[in-house]
Structure formats: C-alpha cells, structure tokens
Simulated scan of single mutants.
Amino acid sequence: MASDRARTVSSAGNSEALRKYLAEFIGTFVLVVGGVGAAVIAGDRIGFLGIAFAFGLSLLAMVYTVGPISGCHINPAVTLGLLLAGKMERRHAPGYILAQCAGALLASGVVLLWAQGAPEGYSAAAQGLGANGFGAHSPGQYGAGAAFLAEIILTFLLVLTVLGATDSRAPVGFAGLAIGLVLTLIHLVGIPLTNTSVNPARSLGPAVFVGGWALEQLWLFIVAPLLGGGLAAAVYRTVRSPVETLTAAQAERSLESERAERLAHRRPTETLP
C-alpha cells in the first residue's frame, strides 16, 4: 500500500514537471517567433521600435498564459536568477533550460521557413536571421567589450524586474506588465548594440541556423546574460527584507479568492446537439 502511494506521488510529480517544461518550451517558442520573427519578416517596416515591442508583447502575453504553470522564465538567465534567489526548485532547472533551448531552436526554424517563402528567398548565413553579434555583426558596429557590458547590465535589469515583480509584496496581477515593458525598454537600448540577447536560448536558436560567425560569437550571449542573471539574484537577496518567498509561478497566478469567484460564476456546459 505504501509503495502504491509512493508511485502515485512520484507519477504526479513527474507529470507536474513535464507540464512545467512544456510551458517553458511553448513560452520560449512564442517569444522567439514573435520577436525574431518580427525582426526578420517585418524589421524593415516596423524598425527597432516595432521589434522592441514585439519582444515585449510576446513576453507579456506568455507571463499571463504559461506563468501560472511554470513561472514563465523562458530564458536560462532568468532561470538562473530565480534559482540563486531561492524562488525555484533546483531539480527543475536543467529541464527548464533544455525546454527553453528546444523552443528557441524550433521557433528559429519556423521563422527561417517563413522567410524562405519570400519571392527573393532568404539566406540565414547571409542575412543573419536576427542573430546576436558584435563588431561587424552589431547593427551599430559596437565592439565585444561594449556588447559584453551591455548584455550583463541589460540582463541584470530584466532579471531584477522579474524578481521584484514576483515578490510576495508586489501588486498582484501586474507582474506581466512590468516584465513585458522592461523587456521592451531593454530592446530599445540593446538592439543597436547587439540585436539584444539577454537570453541565451534566444541567441542559440538563430545562431545554429546562421552558423559561422554567429556560432563563433555565441559564447558572449551565453556568458554575459548568465552573469547578469546571477548579479541580479545577488542584489535582490541583499536588498530584500526577510519575508515569505514565492516562486514566480505562484506570484503569477490569480488570488485564491479570485479563482473561487470565477468558479462560483461558472455556467454549466451546454449539451451539444
């Protein structure tokens, strides 16, 4: 009997973990399709401002869509920051990161297929597929030092906002707005510098299809965002006062009273003919 209960608990735990990983996969897919897709398909029409809002709105939508399930990290740097801040279980971190990278790779492939359907065709190697870069591959020709510093600081800003917006004392229901808007701001600053990464998974996806220079420069867009995420966690743990810690997923759910009210007003499902 005890072994049956243990197997049931283990099965439920595995199912819950898989739901979290699937949510991270979907969230990262949407972020990259929305942001990188806007840059590749419509960048010449909407400009840097439009691309910045595409990334920000994609993240905002996913916070409210998959946030209650997984916390909507959809970024290995955010996962690292939440892990170091004690706001997620260590055992889930590898699964989150693998799901994020897989979502970004699939999304980048989809964007490339779309772009290749244009009358003039599209070459990822020649046209870049929205990959992040520095030096000759930076939109503003910024060097590696400036790019490295920018990615650390901008990721720090993103992860610190995620940590603060999902704090137990933060206004309930507004985390998505704060996080989506700060990502928009970050892209307004960062696109001319590096095309804006602040997310190793977002950088990995296009780089795999571009190859060459994108893979050679990928290290910067893995190392710098992770350093920024770790720095944000250290600052957050230093400045916050000891209170109950919420995971990002808990903070992004509606209140128990709100859920109860929704259920109380639920209409019975009508019988289909």
Rank of each mutant, 00 (worst) to 15 (best):
V63S: 02
A102W: 03
H73Q: 14
I69K: 12
I69C: 14
M62Y: 01
L82S: 04
T79S: 05
L98S: 05
L80C: 14
S108F: 01
M62W: 02
I97H: 01
A77W: 13
G86V: 11
N75K: 11
Y96C: 03
L105E: 05
C101T: 08
L105M: 13
A104H: 07
L83N: 10
S70F: 01
G95P: 15
K87H: 14
K87N: 13
M88K: 02
K87E: 14
R90P: 09
G67Y: 03
T79Q: 02
G86R: 14
L106E: 09
A99D: 14
A99I: 04
Q100A: 01
H73T: 03
A77T: 07
G103M: 11
V63E: 07
T65I: 11
G103T: 12
A77Y: 13
S70I: 01
L80S: 05
M62P: 02
S108W: 04
G71Q: 04
V66H: 00
L84K: 08
T79N: 00
A99M: 04
L83K: 05
I97W: 00
G95A: 14
P94S: 15
A104Q: 10
L80D: 07
Q100P: 02
V78W: 03
G81A: 09
Y64Q: 10
K87A: 12
C72W: 03
M88D: 00
L105K: 04
L84C: 10
M62Q: 06
P76A: 13
A93R: 03
